[in-house]
């Protein structure tokens, strides 16, 4: 942990900390809206808080609460949430090396694995920075998200409409900015383009979460095409963090 802190506090990483802080602030606001919406829909105060601690996945939480509030079956709501979260399985293959050894670290790392932490980790160019970015982003987001949810659950509907602040546009922009440097690699770009088309075309007919998984078909395209430049993953897919920051 000390080495992670040293990496983060070095002069080079102050930009990274600022970027993470920004995403945390936005995440806290969305968490507050989740808490407010859940309580406003008639759920007990503790439900959004328990959920944010044990599930810690925004999209699945909103879906679960929305489905049950609309009179849906709890089993269907759980299955819908699980479908949305299935993407974490392939994410784990990609960033599983950043957790380190030991059961506690591996369990904590797995629980902190969300879209933003994966994107921040992938945008770093070496293993030390990947590890530092993952843990800093994961711990900070976990705290902000849960604090936001508690505030929203108690504070009510002050920030129930985060769309008015454009936060619904901010989150795709966060992931896009972090992923963009990886798209310099031609085969990765091709795979992503195919994946995006597959996900968009299948979205109207399939339950949420499935189209994004089907996007993995794009990886088959990358299987056919050789990556350009050196075959070292650190220099091809994991691009330089400065370009994202």
């Amino acid at each position: 942990m000390r080495s992670i802190w040293r990496t983060l506090t070095s002069r080079l990483e102050s930009g990274l900390l600022r970027d993470i802080a920004l995403v945390c602030a936005a995440d806290g606001l969305v968490g507050a809206s989740f808490g407010a919406i859940a309580v406003g829909s008639g759920f007990p105060l503790w439900l959004p808080m328990l959920m944010s601690l044990v599930v810690f996945a925004g999209a699945a939480q909103f879906m679960f609460v929305g489905l049950i509030a609309a009179g849906g079956n709890p089993i269907a709501a759980v299955l819908a949430g699980l479908l949305v979260n299935a993407r974490h399985l392939p994410f784990g293959f990609a960033v599983g090396d950043v957790f380190g050894r030991g059961l506690v670290r591996r369990a904590a790392g797995a629980h902190l694995m969300i879209d933003e932490t994966v994107a921040f980790a992938l945008a770093q160019r070496d293993a030390d920075r990947r590890r530092a970015a993952f843990w800093a982003c994961g711990i900070a987001l976990f705290v902000c998200w849960n604090v936001g949810v508690v505030a929203g659950a108690f504070g009510g509907t002050v920030i129930s409409d985060t769309d008015a602040f454009g936060l619904d546009a901010a989150f795709p922009a966060v992931l896009l900015a972090l992923v963009l440097p990886s798209l310099k690699d031609r085969s990765t770009r091709l795979a992503a383009a195919v994946g995006v088309v597959v996900a968009l075309v299948t979205s109207p007919w399939l339950p949420a979460g499935v189209p994004v998984l089907l996007a993995l078909a794009g990886v088959l395209v990358a299987l056919g095409a050789a990556p350009d430049g050196p075959r070292d993953p650190a220099s091809t897919s994991r691009s330089r963090s400065e370009e994202a920051t």
């Binding site: 993407r87 994410f91 992931l175 992923v179 990886s182 990765t188 795979a191 996007a215 794009g218």
Partner: peptide, 13 residues
């Protein structure tokens, strides 16, 4: 694996 994660994130975007 890294490509798969990038593809998933791009599809999410």
């Amino acid at each position: 694996m890294a490509t798969a994660a990038v593809v998933l994130l791009a599809a999410l975007v």
